[in-house]
Write a protein that binds this DNA or RNA. Structure first.
Lengths: 244, 244
DNA sequence: AGGGGAACGTAACAGTCTGTAACAAAACCC
DNA sequence: GGGTTTTGTTACAGACTGTTACGTTCCCCT
């Protein structure tokens, strides 16, 4: 599974920025939004794993946004609000929120809650979520997420192991974005304490090497998965995503 | 949907009784429990839709109970506790709780939270096979639950043994959801103590292999029942359900 | 320009996981 | 009772995966 992508919906730029930085430092990809139109644009064009939604949004009302979203989406939604009275909370839950956190809040508690909600969503994936299975195209290759099948530019099927498939998915979900070994390991749920810099050993490097032998014309001089010395790896090509 | 059945776990008889009465007045079936053994007895003998779990349980610790339950069960769990400090909450979430409500609490807020959690659980698939007789279609195959008959894409009837049929039903009820061997065994009521990690042996693997020989074009390279190494198996195709 | 150290590539190895053939016991059917 | 089918267990082989060790490449400093 790819790095979780969190949509932070708040019209206050300072709060949005602080939340984004905090979440990025904790391993998430963060996308900002300030309005329902913003939210819907993101939901329609890319994968969103969780939404942090401020109740008070200037001219717009977070509760209305949540209600609107729930008509079409099952994405987890956590309300953040200065309004902590019980009846506000109940209103939030009644429109389909997964949690409601009152400002000011302990950032570590927010983090725990986000992880719990994401873990649950992952554990109990719904049919709706599974319909988001995608197909990816890059440099003549096709990865069919529905059938878990990789086809080469010449048309033959390439067999990948589970970890190799997972790594490819991480790259396909993050084209042209440099990924550290820790980020990749976190996305793959690889053994190792991510907070200890050397705990990963060389396993990610070996795995990258194994995937390269299967998809690069010349693995010794890779064109698709490039090394960024001192950082990690980058999928150095454009990826086209389509549904089905 | 049937009336939700809530298990109230609290060693304080007065609190248990008040909660039970309140929930019954709001339309739920309430079952009391005071210990892990109580909880497990209920979980093993009847359907439980949600658990309200007190953190302080006399000699037992609600967190330990939650942790234990999460090994085998996906039932929603809401902690109730006088301990409301953030680190207590985080501990609760980290062991798999769905929410954490501090005493003293507004009963209406608890009710809203219960309803939200139940609604969410209802939106997702369950391991429990739906008792209603249904027909399922996948990749040209048809399974007629009424007549217990499986028809291949080419139109001929495929004979399955009882266990094979049960396994297929579990997959059809949970398309695209990874299922552990323990989950499958539990759904099939297979011999073996699910709380003992190694008790299953390889029987589920063999059963999966047998079903594969009957429904896969190439059992050595299966398209329908895919292996998730380290986890279990997933029915990797969309399933269309219809009544009758 | 040269040297040293860090980062990365990769072969080899060992442990884990899974597929499956073979077997035996139980269940089922005639 | 006998034959067949079902089911779980056992054993083995192959694939997968991470670790280790060594060689190569890169970068920085003198």
């Amino acid at each position: 599974m790819a790095i979780p992508r969190i949509l932070v919906v708040d019209d206050d730029a300072e709060i949005r920025s602080m939340l984004a930085q905090f979440l990025r430092e904790n391993g998430f990809i963060v996308l900002p939004a300030t309005s329902l139109a913003d939210v819907q644009r993101h939901m329609n064009t890319e994968r969103i794993d969780l939404i942090l939604l401020d109740v008070m949004l200037g001219d717009e009302n977070g509760v209305d946004i949540c209600q609107h979203l729930r008509q079409d989406h099952d994405v987890p939604i956590i309300f953040i609000s200065a309004l902590s009275a019980d009846h506000h909370r109940m209103r939030g839950y009644s429109v389909g929120a997964d949690d409601y956190i009152a400002k000011p809040f302990n950032p570590q508690l927010l983090l725990a809650r986000i992880k719990a909600v994401l873990q649950r969503a992952q554990r109990t994936s719904s049919l709706t979520y599974r319909r988001r299975v995608r197909s990816f195209a890059f440099e003549g290759w096709q990865y069919d997420g529905k059938h878990d099948q990789l086809t080469s530019p010449k048309g033959y099927t390439v067999s990948l192991s589970q970890k190799e498939t997972g790594l490819l998915k991480v790259f396909l979900a993050n084209p042209r974005i440099p990924l550290t070994r820790e980020e990749i390991a976190s996305a793959l749920d690889v053994t190792g304490d991510a907070s200890v810099p050397d705990s990963l050993g060389r396993s990610i490097d070996v795995l990258v090497g194994r995937l390269r032998t299967k998809i690069e014309l010349d693995p010794k001089s890779p064109d698709l998965i490039k090394t960024q010395r001192g950082t990690g790896y980058v999928f150095a090509t454009d990826v086209t995503v389509s549904d089905g």
